[in-house]
Design a protein around this nucleic acid. Structure first.
Lengths: 169, 169
DNA sequence: ATTTTATGTCAGCCTTGTTGACTTTCCAAG
DNA sequence: CTTGGAAAGTCAACAAGGCTGACATAAAAT
C-alpha cells in the first residue's frame, strides 16, 4: 500500500496526472476561456461584430500586409467564412486590401486608422484581464501557464504560433 | 538606461507583464483552446453532435441528477438553447430526464449507459491530450497553469468552478 | 497554350446562440 | 382555497459563423 502509482511510473510524483487533476484542468480551461473572450465579446457586440472579426483584426494587425491565404492558414477556416468577415471589415473601412506588387493575384491586408483604433480597444481589454491574471499568479506561474498551453497545441498550430513569434517583435 | 520599468514598478522583475508577453499569452490561449477542442470535435462529428452536446453531457456526468436550471447557470446559455440540445440527447437515449420527487416541476438529468459511453469516449480523448501536455510541462508548470487559468475567470465563473470542486470527489 | 494558384462570390445547409410570446405544472404565501 | 410566481417546456423567428459545392477571374507557372 505504498505510493504504487508513483513507484510504477518510475519513482516520480505523478499525482498531477490523475484523472481527477486532468478533469480539473479541463474544466478550468473551459471556464477560463469564457473569461478570456468575455470582454472583447462585449466590445464587439457594441460595434456589431463577432469573434470572427476580432480574430481577423488581431492577425492583420499582428502581421500587416499578410495575404488572404496566409490568414486562412492561421485561422483554419474556409475562405468563404473568412471572406464574409473581411468583406464587412473592408466595407466598414477598418481593413484595406491592396493588390500585390509582385504577384497581382494576392491581396495584402492592412488595418486602417479606424481598424487600429478598434484593435487597440479590443486588445487593451484582453490584455487588461491577462495582466490582472498574470499579476495575481506571479511570474513562475505564468511561465508554467505558457508551457502547458504550448504543449496543448496541435503540432501544426504550434508551428503557426512559433512562426508568429519569429516574425513579430 | 537601467531597468527603468522594473525600478518604476517597485523593484520587482515585471518583465512578464509587458504588452508583448501579454500578447503572447493571448495568442497561446487561442491556439491552445483550438487544440483543446479538436479531439472531442472529431468524435462529436462522427456522432452528429456539436460542442453544446459535449458540454451538456460533461456536466450531467459531473453532477448526476442536476436540474435544468442548475445546468443553465453553469453553461450560461438560454433555456431554449440548452433545451434543443437536451431534447436530442434524450430522444437519442443518452440522457434521462426524471421529474423531481420533492419539486415535481424540476427535471433531474442523468446519463444513460449509452450517454456514459459517449462521455467516456470524449473525456478520454480530452484527458489524453491534457495528460500529454501536463507530462511534457511537468508538475510545477501545471500548478502555474491552473493558477493563471483561475485568475482569468470571471468572478461568477470562478464560483461555479469552485462549487464543482466542493461537490465533486 | 495549358494548368495551377489566389481570390472572390453565389447558394444553401448546420449548429448554436439570441429574443419574445405563450402554456403547463405546481409550490407557497396570502 | 385561491392566486402569484417560479420551473420547465414549446413555438417562431432571427443572426453569427462554421461548412460544402460550384463557378468566375486574373495571373503566375509550366
Amino acid at each position: 500500500m505504498t505510493e504504487r502509482g508513483a513507484a510504477a511510473a518510475g519513482g516520480e510524483a505523478l499525482l498531477y496526472l490523475t484523472d481527477d487533476q486532468l478533469r480539473k484542468g479541463i474544466e478550468a480551461m473551459y471556464f477560463a476561456y469564457r473569461g478570456f473572450t468575455a470582454d472583447p465579446d462585449r466590445i464587439l457586440a457594441r460595434h456589431g461584430y463577432g469573434r470572427a472579426h476580432h480574430r481577423a483584426i488581431h492577425f492583420i494587425n499582428r502581421a500587416p500586409g499578410t495575404t488572404v491565404n496566409n490568414l486562412l492558414s492561421i485561422l483554419g477556416v474556409t475562405k468563404q467564412s473568412l471572406n464574409r468577415v473581411l468583406r464587412t471589415l473592408i466595407e466598414d473601412g477598418l481593413v484595406e486590401s491592396r493588390i500585390g506588387q509582385a504577384d497581382k493575384r494576392e491581396r495584402h491586408l492592412f488595418l486602417t486608422a479606424a481598424g487600429r483604433t478598434l484593435d487597440r480597444e479590443l486588445s487593451e481589454a484582453q490584455r487588461g484581464r491577462m495582466r490582472a491574471a498574470y499579476r495575481e499568479a506571479g511570474p513562475a506561474a505564468v511561465a508554467g501557464f505558457r508551457q502547458v498551453l504550448e504543449a496543448m497545441m496541435d503540432a501544426d498550430l504550434r508551428r503557426q504560433f512559433a512562426a508568429l513569434r519569429e516574425g513579430g517583435p
